[in-house]
Simulated scan of single mutants.
Amino acid sequence: MDSDRLRVEFMDTVYEAASRDDVDYYVDLATTVEGPVLELGCGTGRIYLELLEASVDADGIDLSADSLAALREKAEQRGLEPSVWQANMAEFIVDKEYALVTCPFNAVQELTTIEQQQALFESVYDALAPGGKFVFDTFVPNFAYITDMWGEWQQRTIEFRNEPVEFHTCSRIVDEVTQEYVSEKKAITQDGEELFSFQGRATLLPYRELELLARSSPFESWKVTGDYTDESLTNEHSAQVWTLIRT
């Protein structure tokens, strides 16, 4: 198995072991709308497959062919029939109208230019039926944590294929003006073999920047809540959840 497939499988193990409230939130949301649902950045199906289990009429797109291959394998094992394809969420085109489009797990932050971000909002707007919603989340930048922890390698042990593997991560700001950062990850076996290493570039996307994007988008109205609840966003929350509505 090549390093890309190993990375996908390993990161799947990491994410499945994490305790997050977003799965139940997006599943509950998808089961309340009348019409099909589209998940952007569906990855290996951490949320998407739960939508299918809940009998949601759901499609998904992702840029990674390896992630989609893993999703299809897991779907087959669970007796599910996915409708997913490879596409760039900043410039996708669909042939149906969706009641709900979602983009979970900070995926919007991977679009690092204003042109990409605006293209995303426009593509989603065009994909939605009248009254449809676009719901996505990003993390609230915790600058105390960033100051203390970013720039230093963090390490933990992950059980992978019945063997302990050392998982190393490091995030660092690479452009203070644009608030872009790089997140590096690598996995090393007990024998010192590197299974994979990769890095991804993203942007912090604080509230005011997202508000400006919403104001410049075709969407007519929006609201923001914290931590996958109905609570208004405050400093106590670690995730901001945006709901943009096509009226």
Rank of each mutant, 00 (worst) to 15 (best):
F121I: 10
S221E: 07
R161Y: 04
F10S: 03
T31E: 13
G132P: 11
D59F: 08
Q109T: 13
A119P: 04
Q179R: 11
Q240T: 09
P36N: 11
Q86A: 13
D62W: 11
W85L: 08
F105D: 02
Y181N: 06
E34Q: 13
V27N: 07
E97N: 05
V84D: 06
S217P: 07
L68I: 13
A58W: 09
T225L: 07
A214V: 15
R7D: 04
A87R: 11
C103E: 02
S55H: 08
L204T: 05
Y48I: 07
N162H: 08
V37W: 02
D24A: 14
F143I: 14
S55N: 15
L29F: 02
G226E: 00
S183V: 10
R246D: 04
Q86I: 14
T157M: 03
E211W: 02
R201Q: 13
S183H: 13
W222S: 13
R5G: 00
Q179N: 06
Y25N: 01
E152C: 03
F160Q: 04
R201V: 14
V14C: 05
G60R: 11
S197Y: 10
R78W: 08
F160Y: 12
L49M: 03
E176K: 13
Q199S: 01
Q155G: 04
V165W: 02
Q199D: 14
E91Y: 03
L233N: 00
H168P: 03
D24M: 04
S238V: 14
I146N: 07
S216R: 15
D230T: 14
L111Q: 04
L120N: 01
C103W: 06
P82W: 05
E231K: 05
V177P: 05
E211M: 14
D175I: 10
Q154K: 10
T138R: 05
D22A: 04
L63Y: 08
Y181K: 04
S67I: 03
I188L: 10
Y207A: 05
S183Y: 13
